[in-house]
Design a protein around this nucleic acid. Structure first.
Length: 434
DNA sequence: TCTGGGGTCCTAGGACCC
DNA sequence: TCTGGGGTCCTAGGACCC
């Protein structure tokens, strides 16, 4: 038995904890560069604002409907998430933190009255963190997700589901008729694992609801679709195929990518951006005690705008695998020079680190290089991470050719614009002082 | 003017090998 | 004229998730 605990409209709820005046108002949290909506309050949803909708399309509502739009504050949301997760863990013996706003609780079989306990945990989460949450309970993860969807919508959209299923919905306490009714009322596209593309293709075959999906022959799901859909069908039938993962599996890639505030057409600001992406990615890499064997650097034009398209990636092998910012920045800039072509309005770029290996494997690699240089490099990186953690991102960074001191390119994130930056050639900094 | 960022998994097709 | 079959590995692209 699984439970899924999910914070409602999570980013908006976090903001409301610290700004209670926002309660009852339509509120939207915006993405990087204030580009689009990434969280909406119920009131904002009622205004018709869609997930991912560009800000400029609903900006007018700030004037005419008292809509409040906020720039995202991910540090705050991460902190609130930690608090919510620690309270949520009280529901059962095992927890899988699935995303910033939701977790699965597993192994609920031995608990006496799971529903009553879930109601209590939900109340405690609200009392201790201020975050409203909903809980779905079922024999499979996919059904637990579905019950969570029911618990959220029974209250939010009156008439969608029986009102007594709101807030906490336990599949095993529903009669068979009611289970079928719940599946029938749920659109296929709301089922976990069925996205836009697949739901519209399913609709062409008359498969419209979760009940239709649950009744698909598994062989048909596998042969005409994929093993993924087959698994979803089985899970909807109550056969558990997806297990709880208490320890997060090791990361396979680490990315740092951004859209630019304005299109970029020349090399210098692109080099500056890519150097910063490589630096951020390197910090994440060292944070996880890892090194990368491959660095991907890409740049592309906007997929939303007319005109000539450009989309190129350079794949840089790092031998030996490295977590040294100087190595990463150098590879990123070299890759960028390989793919760059003038004449395009570039809207986004990024650095993706792959072929990650853990710390223990790294030491073997170290013997290939001058041990003293390696020790200096790691001390330097450690010092850099500490300084930047204390004084702000990018206070000390690796200089790249073509990089400018002032932020003229307009690509940088809003929050970071305020931080003064000092360009330093790291090779000149004595390690002891750094 | 203005459209997020960070992940995972699966599949198809090509290269290569015996 | 006639040109196998099966396995593995890699990559790009597509789909999904929050």
């Amino acid at each position: 038995m699984f439970a899924l605990i999910d914070g409602n409209n999570f980013y908006v709820s976090c903001e409301r904890v610290f700004r209670p005046a926002l309660k009852g108002l339509p509120v939207v949290v915006l993405s990087n560069n204030d580009g689009c909506a990434i969280a909406r309050s119920d009131e904002a949803k009622a205004l018709g604002i869609k997930m991912g909708q560009p800000y400029y399309q609903f900006r007018d509502l700030e004037r005419i409907s008292s809509l409040v739009c906020l720039s995202a504050n991910f540090e705050l949301y991460g902190d609130m998430s930690d608090r919510m997760m620690s309270v949520a863990a009280g529901l059962g013996p095992q927890q899988e933190i699935y995303s910033i706003d939701e977790c699965f609780i597993g192994d609920l079989g031995g608990i006496k009255d799971v529903t009553a306990r879930a109601v209590a945990v939900r109340e405690r989460i609200f009392q201790w963190t201020g975050i409203p949450a909903c809980i779905g309970i079922a024999p499979t993860k996919t059904l637990a997700k579905l019950c969570n969807y029911v618990a959220k919508n029974a209250e939010r959209k009156p008439g969608s589901y029986p009102i007594e299923l709101s807030r906490v919905c336990n599949w095993t306490e529903l009669t068979e008729d009611r289970q079928l009714d719940v599946l029938r009322r749920t659109p296929a596209g709301e089922v976990w694992g069925i996205g836009k593309r697949i739901s519209s293709k399913l609709a062409e075959q008359g498969i419209l609801t979760a009940l239709d999906v649950a009744r698909m022959p598994t062989a048909k799901a596998r042969d005409e679709w994929s093993v993924v859909l087959e698994r979803t069908v089985r899970e909807l039938q109550g056969i558990s195929c997806i297990t709880l993962e208490q320890a997060p599996p090791p990361k396979k890639q680490i990315a740092c990518t951004r859209s630019f505030g304005h299109p970029i057409t020349t090399m210098p600001p692109l080099i500056e951006a890519v150097s910063e992406f490589a630096t951020r990615a390197g910090e994440k890499l060292r944070n996880g005690g890892m090194r990368a064997g491959v660095l991907n650097v890409f740049a592309h034009t906007s997929p939303f705008r007319p005109g000539q398209r450009f989309y190129k990636t350079a794949v840089m092998q790092l031998q030996p695998a490295s977590s040294d910012t100087k190595v990463l920045v150098d590879a990123a800039v070299r890759g960028l020079r390989q793919i760059y072509e003038p004449g395009y309005q570039l809207s986004k770029a990024g650095v993706i680190l792959q072929d990650l290996c853990a710390g223990t494997e790294q030491q073997a690699v170290l013997s290939f290089t001058d041990p003293e240089a390696v020790r200096d490099a790691s001390a330097l990186m450690e010092a850099m991470d500490k300084i930047n953690a204390r004084f702000g991102k990018g206070v000390v960074h690796v200089a790249s050719t073509g990089q400018t001191q002032e932020d003229e390119s307009g690509w940088r994130m809003k929050q970071e614009r305020r931080t003064p930056r000092y360009t330093t050639c790291l090779d000149d900094v004595p390690i002891a002082r750094a």
